[in-house]
Amino acid sequence: MIIGAILKGKGTEVISVGPADTVLSVARVLSERRIGAALVRDAGGALLGIVSERDIVRGMAAHGPGTTGRSVEEFMTRDLVTVAPQTLVTHALALVTRRRIRHLPVLDGDRLVGLVSIGDLVKARIDEAEQEAEELKAYVAAAG
């Protein structure tokens, strides 16, 4: 299975915030949308980074109570790890495991086409394994 198949099922909506948005406003977006990360994009839509719950917690640990009023640009992860729609789910799972990250922006060339989480990847892999098991059962039943 490829990443593009996941996006067909979950959709391509990506929640983005601006680099000058406060940590508090981003935390509210993450909470309201029940998501773990948002992409950080400039006014022209260019991808600048990603901010996750983990980034916010680390910022709070380093800067204390004043963190919520600071800009997300101070805490976002700039070194993005991305995948393409044609990337195999198994490759993406290895990538998130090796890099210890939870979200992968999906780029088709330079164009952002979605975002997948480790949860999306695991669900896709489980669905694929269940389908394979059903096909094997059907094959054995037909052969028997």
Rank of each mutant, 00 (worst) to 15 (best):
G69H: 02
L48A: 10
A27G: 00
I35E: 00
H91E: 13
R111H: 06
A142H: 14
L24M: 06
A143D: 13
V14A: 08
V14Y: 03
R58W: 06
G49I: 03
V106H: 00
H63W: 07
V113W: 09
G45E: 00
G44A: 15
E132A: 15
E130V: 12
L121G: 09
L107P: 07
T68N: 11
S25L: 04
R58G: 03
A20S: 07
G44V: 01
M76E: 09
G144V: 11
A141T: 11
T77A: 02
L24E: 14
L93F: 06
A141N: 13
V106F: 00
V51F: 10
A38W: 01
G114W: 01
L30K: 09
A62H: 10
D108E: 15
V116W: 00
V17Y: 06
V14K: 02
V113D: 05
T22N: 08
L47N: 09
L24W: 08
L104R: 07
V106L: 04
D120E: 08
P105Q: 05
G9P: 11
T12V: 14
G59S: 04
E13P: 01
H91S: 14
E74I: 08
S16C: 12
E134P: 05
R100Q: 13
I56Q: 02
G44K: 15
M60G: 05
L88I: 01
T87Y: 00
G69R: 02
E53K: 09
G36W: 00
E132F: 07
M76R: 09
A37P: 11
P65N: 03
I126Q: 11
V72P: 01
V106D: 02
D110R: 15
T68H: 13
A142K: 15
V122T: 14
A141H: 11
K123Y: 01
M76W: 09
T77P: 13
E134R: 12
H63E: 12
S16E: 11
R111T: 10
V40A: 00
K10G: 08
V23Q: 04
E53P: 07
E130K: 14
S71C: 01
H91A: 14
L93N: 07
S117V: 04
Y139E: 13
T22K: 01
G36N: 00
V23P: 03
V96P: 05
D55S: 07
S25E: 11
T97S: 11
Q86C: 03
I3H: 06
G64I: 09
K137T: 07
E13Q: 10
A5D: 15
A141P: 05
R102Y: 03
E135Q: 15
I101Q: 09
L112Y: 07
G11S: 13
A61S: 10
F75E: 04
V57F: 08
V17K: 07
I15Y: 11
V14I: 10
V26T: 04
V14F: 03
T12M: 10
T12S: 15
G18V: 08
K10A: 03
A143F: 14
A43C: 10
A46P: 13
K137Y: 12
D42P: 11
A84I: 07
Y139V: 08
Q131C: 03
R99I: 02
D79S: 15
L95A: 01
R78V: 04
S71E: 05
S25Q: 13
G109E: 06
